[in-house]
Amino acid sequence: MSTLPVLNNADMYHHYSDVQFRDGCSVIHEMLKPKRGESILDLGCGTGRLTMQLASLVGDSGRVVGVDPDSCRIAVANEQLKKMDDIPVTFQLGSIREALPLGPFDGIFSNYVFHWFERAERAEMMHQMYDSLKPGGRLTFVLETNQPQPNAIIRDIFRLTEPNLDEESASGMKMDVPSVWLQHCSDAGFLVELSEVFRTEKAGPNLDAILQFLKASIPNFQPIKLTDDGLHELDSRYKTGNGDEVAFSLTVLKVLARKPQES
């Protein structure tokens, strides 16, 4: 069964996930382009911020399902849902296997999720997503790649907190080059219509905000392991000069793929 890592600190994640939220909104509007009346799956929906964005686009005649394996995040999402007017959103605990019976969908959206999947699970995951889509349905996802970047604060944080581990072992993220992900899409039967690799520059209000987001996002991350010297090094390297703001970069892959129409 394909699984995502169960993460803690859901409220903290909801509060500190602005960077990923902005990227997700961009991909929704520029690549997935949900239409009114469509059914959309948000795979790895977290606390549901982007799920709500999807719901606003499909309207009352549409349907959005958000799935996530973290019960705490699903609880936060459902609490947020209670504050909204009646909107066509359902949150489901689980992953793609649990979402299969809820389809078929016109589109699947996933934001900064796939690099958490174990490599041995990815082929099955792609085939399950293919099976979850209607003919002509779209798959859109965003993920981090392992291509080098010059301003990688996360890499440096793990170098300081887990000096005896490589970045993948320390973070749990299984990042690969873009061609690996595009091949997974093709092997499952998808037609890749658009793929883009870009380095995105990000900023946080301060170093603590970045550390809190990592604590909420990454299993076993312990910012307490950062020494005063380590904190000073990070501040010196990544502060922008605009107060306590810190800036960093990620190398990201965005993909739009489509399930062929039935002949």
Rank of each mutant, 00 (worst) to 15 (best):
G24M: 03
G94H: 06
G136R: 10
G46Q: 05
G44R: 01
S171A: 14
Q80M: 14
G107F: 00
F248E: 03
G94N: 05
R155H: 10
G230R: 02
R138M: 00
K82F: 09
G136E: 10
F21E: 07
Y13E: 11
P205C: 06
G37C: 03
G204N: 09
S263Y: 10
A10V: 10
A203P: 02
L32R: 01
Q183L: 12
Q212S: 06
L226S: 05
L256R: 04
L139T: 00
R258N: 07
N242T: 09
Y112S: 01
L231E: 15
R159Q: 10
Q212D: 08
G66R: 03
D18W: 02
S249Q: 09
H14K: 11
E245G: 01
A247H: 03
L7Q: 12
A152R: 01
M126V: 05
R36W: 04
L226W: 03
A170L: 08
N151L: 12
F105A: 04
G66F: 01
K259F: 03
T47E: 08
G24K: 02
E38L: 05
V180K: 05
P219A: 04
K33E: 14
P150Y: 09
S2F: 04
Q20H: 11
F141V: 00
L81F: 10
P178C: 07
R97T: 15
P163F: 10
L214M: 09
L160V: 02
V19Q: 00
F141L: 00
L100I: 15
F190L: 05
T227H: 03
T140F: 01
V246P: 00
S179R: 10
D166A: 05
A188E: 04
V19N: 01
E38T: 06
C185A: 09
K35A: 12
T251F: 07
E233F: 15
M173A: 13
F158K: 02
E233W: 15
V192L: 06
Y13N: 13
A120R: 11
V177L: 09
M1I: 12
E144L: 05
E262P: 09
A216V: 08
S56G: 15
S56W: 14
S186A: 15
L81H: 13
E162W: 07
T140N: 02
L207E: 06
P101T: 13
G59C: 10
G172F: 08
V76T: 06
L191M: 12
R199M: 12
R199Q: 12
D85I: 14
G103W: 08
D208W: 01
I28E: 01
S179M: 11
G137Q: 04
T51W: 10
K254L: 00
T145L: 02
N78R: 15
W181V: 00
E168R: 04
T161W: 06
F114W: 04
L143K: 00
I28M: 00
D23Y: 07
A120E: 14
P101G: 12
V252D: 00
M84N: 15
G103M: 07
K259E: 04
N220S: 08
P148L: 07
R159F: 08
E121Q: 13
Q222S: 06
A75C: 11
E30P: 00
R155A: 09
S61H: 12
L100Y: 14
E124Q: 14
L214R: 02
A120T: 13
L253W: 07
E168L: 02
E98M: 10
L194Q: 15
N8E: 11
D11A: 15
F117Q: 01
S26T: 05
L226K: 03
V64I: 11
